[in-house]
């Protein structure tokens, strides 16, 4: 029989298409529900995903990965992915393991919010390579909607920083 845990194990193997971080560590998996199908031992699975940004173009790929991989589990009859906005996703949902995987490729994540303001940019950020804090924003819009581009004046490297959203 399929359990929530076996499904979560599968979701942990699915990476965000644009970053080496699993969708579970990214904090976008909000809920996994299993309903037994009528007159059939196979199960119907429904998974709620929180988009990072509403217009994130990776969403259809994430949906496809989930329905394919979870659909391969024994006893799963159908998989449905719902994109929901309640609660809103925030960088605070990224797990410590997720922060580590991002930092390894030079993407930093803001510390947990102390203020209720969702959006804060232009705060000091430590360089993921040399840890210096004399860094600056070179562009608030980066390769994806959730990241912006920084430059480290100490080690002269560019890096990316997740938006405090």
């Amino acid at each position: 029989m399929v359990t929530r845990d076996t499904i979560l194990d599968v979701l942990r193997t699915i990476d965000d298409p644009e970053m080496p971080i699993s969708i579970v560590d990214l904090g976008i998996v909000e809920d996994v529900r299993i309903a037994e199908a009528d007159a059939d031992p196979a199960e119907q699975v429904e998974i709620d995903i929180l988009p990072t940004f509403i217009g994130c173009p990776a969403l259809p790929m994430i949906e496809q990965d989930i329905t394919q991989k979870v659909g391969l589990l024994d006893g799963v009859e159908s998989v449905r992915v719902r994109f929901v906005f309640d609660p809103p996703w925030s960088v605070d949902r990224i797990t410590p393991q997720g922060r580590k995987s991002l930092e390894e490729i030079g993407v930093t994540v803001p510390e947990r919010a102390e203020s209720p303001e969702l959006v804060q940019i232009n705060l000091p950020v430590a360089c993921p390579f040399c840890k210096a804090t004399n860094t600056r924003v070179t562009s608030p819009y980066g390769p994806t909607r959730c990241r912006m581009i920084y430059y480290c004046d100490a080690c002269k490297n560019s890096f990316e920083h997740m938006k405090r959203v």
């Binding site: 509403i54 906005f85 938006k163």
Partner: peptide
């Protein structure tokens, strides 16, 4: 309200721009 809250957060980045 849930959807609008999320859009509102993104609009704040538009204002800044």
């Amino acid at each position: 309200a849930a959807l609008a809250g999320r859009i509102h957060a993104e609009e704040a980045t538009h204002i800044e721009h």
